[in-house]
């Protein structure tokens, strides 16, 4: 449970993705930071979501086909 009386665990979880996106509207990043510093459950949840989104971001890179590299080089040579 939270020891931070400014905001409840439920309110933090509700805003967790907006917090991670830097898109909070009605509370400050610092308010969430303070809560996470004192609440093990919310901190664990936030760390999980951070690691998951990092894995999602990393997953996007895909080896480009050689024909695309050739096509792009040809295209740049043409201009």
């Amino acid at each position: 449970m939270s020891h931070d009386h400014e905001i409840s665990c439920e309110e933090v979880i509700e805003r967790l993705f907006a917090y991670l996106d830097g898109e909070l509207e009605d509370v400050s990043q610092e308010t969430i930071d303070r809560h996470l510093a004192h609440c093990r459950d919310c901190f664990t949840r936030a760390e999980f979501e951070k690691r998951l989104r990092a894995r999602v971001a990393d997953s996007v890179s895909t080896t480009a086909p050689q024909r695309l590299r050739t096509r792009v080089r040809f295209l740049l040579d043409e201009f």
């Binding site: 996007v60 890179s61 895909t62 480009a64 086909p65 695309l68 590299r69 792009v72 080089r73 740049l76």
Partner: peptide
Amino acid sequence: RAAFAERVDALMDRLYGTAL
């Protein structure tokens, strides 16, 4: 042109992966 092509090539996997 050469520097541009080199930078594009370095990003190609991410460009293609994102588009895919």
